[in-house]
């Protein structure tokens, strides 16, 4: 409709981790004050832009900021990568979703991969501050993609870094690492996992037979994110739940990952077309500038 409103939010800090991964720390004092570990936010860059969900990677109530680690996966995230520190954008909504249930459990294992590495951090920190023993497993493609190792170390009794190529830490997947931990026979009271659906599914399978309560943060496709459209529905134990208001954390042993993996590809074609169109426009703009 185009209600012209000022660009209300500004990027306080940007940090580039790799060609496809970067961090935005955004000034949003009210949101930071209300945020809890496990919640997500939504943002829309400008008029006509998508409203996309991003899991909170950190919040700082003193600085009044919300931090997200973003991986380029489509048009909007690619566009975000071009924004610089101090740049402003239109809409920032949250915190949304139910916070992760933090309690004194004993030994809690955190498994994060891909997009899910950063969101592990505030949950890990909260569990550690609660007095839990923590084991953290984070997976990266290679050495260049690694970030926040020091942060994870600070709150982990045991930090296991996995890389696909073995350039740092151990070579292998996060599931390989969890398998190793399970084989040592150490008691695990809870597992919390964030990452690609395939990874979370494997993690859930590993803990199922041992009956270790396991929670997965579901990063469903959303539109409003406030309990209206039903885009984010997840089948859990045969019931339809909504990641935006019932989640994002769901009982990983009960989530129908097979369905989720299909639903995650809903807009693959359209997203491809959109990205191509964006690339064409960018090239045209660059040419315009150089000419």
């Amino acid at each position: 409709m185009g209600t012209l409103r000022p660009m209300a939010f500004s990027i306080f800090r940007k940090q580039i981790f790799s060609p496809t991964t970067f961090l935005w720390e955004v000034e949003a004092p009210d949101m930071a004050a209300a945020a809890h570990p496990g919640q997500f936010v939504m943002l829309r860059l400008h008029e006509g832009g998508e409203r996309i969900p991003l899991t909170v990677a950190d919040f700082d109530r003193d600085r009044g900021t919300i931090t997200m680690v973003v991986k380029v996966v489509g048009k909007t995230t690619e566009e975000m990568a071009t924004y610089l520190e101090g740049d402003t954008f239109q809409d920032f909504i949250g915190p949304l979703g139910a916070p992760t249930h933090i309690a004194q459990k004993g030994h809690v294992v955190f498994v994060g991969g891909g997009l899910g590495v950063a969101p592990i951090y505030p949950v890990l920190r909260a569990f550690k501050k609660m007095g839990n023993r923590t084991t953290t497993i984070v997976g990266f493609r290679n050495e260049q993609e690694i970030f926040w190792k020091d942060r994870f170390e600070e709150f982990s009794d045991n930090l296991i870094v996995m890389t696909d190529d073995g350039s740092v830490g151990k070579k292998g997947t996060t599931a390989d690492a969890l398998k190793d931990v399970l084989e040592t026979g150490v008691n695990i009271d809870e597992v919390f996992t964030v990452g690609p659906l395939g990874m979370m599914e494997v993690i859930a399978e590993l803990t199922r037979s041992k009956k270790i309560p396991t929670f997965a943060s579901m990063n469903s496709i959303m539109v409003d994110g406030i309990g209206m459209c039903g885009s984010c529905r997840v089948t859990v134990d045969g019931n339809v739940l909504f990641a935006c208001v019932d989640g994002p954390d769901m009982d990983a042993h009960k989530v129908d990952f097979k369905e989720m993996k299909i639903r995650q590809k809903r807009f693959r074609n359209e997203e491809g077309v959109l990205l191509q169109k964006y690339h064409t426009e960018c090239r045209a703009q660059t040419k315009g500038v150089s000419a």
Partner: peptide
């Protein structure tokens, strides 16, 4: 705008 009461 963008203020979800019950959340923020």
């Amino acid at each position: 705008f963008n203020k979800v009461i019950g959340k923020i």
